[in-house]
Simulated assay, not measured.
Amino acid sequence: MDLTFTPEEEQFRAELRAWLADNVPPRWRSRSFWSAMPEAAAFELRRDWERRKYDAGFAGISWPREYGGRGGTPGMQAIYDEETQRAGAPHTVNALGLAFLAPTVMAIGTDEQKRDIIGPMLRNEVIWCQGFSEPGAGSDLAALRTGGVLDGDEFVVNGQKVWTTNAVYADKIFALVRTEPGSQRHSGISMLLIDMRSDGVQARPLRQISGASEFGEVFFTDARVKVGDCLGGVGNGWSTAMLLLSFERGASGIVQYTAMRRQFDEIVATAATFGRTGDPILRQQLASRMVELECLRYRSMHVLTQVERGEDLGAGSSVTKLQWSHTHQDLWETFDDLLGPEATLARPRPDTDLRAMQQEAMWSRSVTIWGGSSQVQRNIVAERVLGLPR
């Protein structure tokens, strides 16, 4: 494991850190700033931030230059993830497109798809969402029922997707659709690229217990999609989806570590506000969380070293997913323990606004489900890493 970065990468860090210092207003670093802003306004502010990053040359850090990227190393991408988190910069509004769809299009898209999708996505002109999960087809994605019937050079699509991040704000959706009537399980599925503004497509927000509604559900009613707007070939949707998800599972965990390290400091500050820093039980919990975080940091650097060496992460990426998701939950369970019964109150203390932190604590319950549930990840680790029998 290599814990160092090259001189070129450290020079990139200095350049990025200076730009962030000049362009991230101090008020953006406060959770209360974002929680007090209407969701639509916050989304547009973050979208404008993405455009400014592109104009400054800080978009597509590890993308090839031929696609408008910076052509940087995996180390530069890790530095970017780390420094933007430390600076309190807004989260991207186009994460699913940039992290997963774009590299898939680069790998298997047609020349026309590469031209029409990658550039506008990098410039943040087109926001993408992902249409995989359905009612009755969440963990068992192969049970999907949304269907597309061929009519001339178009598919007529009917069905429903759910738990779609940014559904109400997205311009387009990459969706798994069963395009071979009567097919079962993994066969007969295609990945269609669908305009969210076209006739027959409707997105509705899903309000969560935290009050946020970044999720949505999408309904297709006789929506028409050109055959040419199929990524990876008709009937090859499952293999295309597995390629796309491999980019998600290849993440090193550095961005999660850096974000959680800031969250840890927030929780410690809250403990001081509540006069609990001398509580021996709480101090032990916080010490345990710090140990978990540092273990995640070393794991993240190990994975980054593998990526830089061109090694296949394989099923080992499931270890990273398990590690960071459970560390995240443990961290916010400590926050809930700090608040005690008051954790369920909208305003635990009149003099302290903890709503944004409470929302994060609620959100933490989901991280062991999305991106591959912990049960599924443990099975993968048992069978493909440890070699245990099924």
Results as ranks from 00 to 15, higher is better:
Gln85Ile: 12
Ile79Glu: 06
Asn94Met: 02
Gly228Trp: 07
Gly188His: 02
Trp332Ser: 04
Ile79Tyr: 07
Gly387Pro: 15
Ser183Glu: 12
Met301Cys: 14
Arg262Val: 02
Gly188Leu: 03
Arg31Thr: 13
Leu345Lys: 10
Leu16Phe: 11
His302Pro: 04
Gly216Pro: 07
Arg13Glu: 06
Glu83Asn: 14
Pro74Lys: 09
Gly253Tyr: 00
Asn236Phe: 07
Gly138Asn: 00
Ala59Cys: 05
Ala356Asp: 15
Gly109Val: 05
Arg197Val: 01
Gly182Glu: 11
Ser187Met: 13
Arg297Tyr: 09
Arg283Gln: 05
Thr179His: 05
Arg197Ser: 04
Val307Glu: 07
Ser139Ala: 13
Asp116Pro: 06
Arg70Asp: 01
Gly138Tyr: 12
Glu217Cys: 15
Thr344Gly: 14
Thr270Asp: 09
Val227Ser: 05
Pro120Lys: 03
Gly138Val: 06
Thr73His: 08
Gln113His: 06
Ala87Ser: 04
Leu338Tyr: 02
Phe215Glu: 14
Leu122Ala: 13
Asp222Asn: 05
Val24Phe: 02
Met260Ala: 09
Pro341Lys: 06
Leu304His: 10
Trp19Leu: 11
Asp222Arg: 10
Val93Asp: 02
Ala137Leu: 03
His328Cys: 10
Gly314Pro: 11
Ala21Ile: 10
Gln130Lys: 11
Ser373Pro: 09
Leu338Phe: 02
Leu339Gly: 04
His91Trp: 13
Trp163Ile: 00
Val177Tyr: 12
Leu388His: 10
Thr368Glu: 12
Ser300Val: 07
Tyr298His: 15
Ala223Gln: 13
Glu333Leu: 07
Ser183Asn: 00
Val218Ala: 15
Arg289Tyr: 04
Ala251Asp: 10
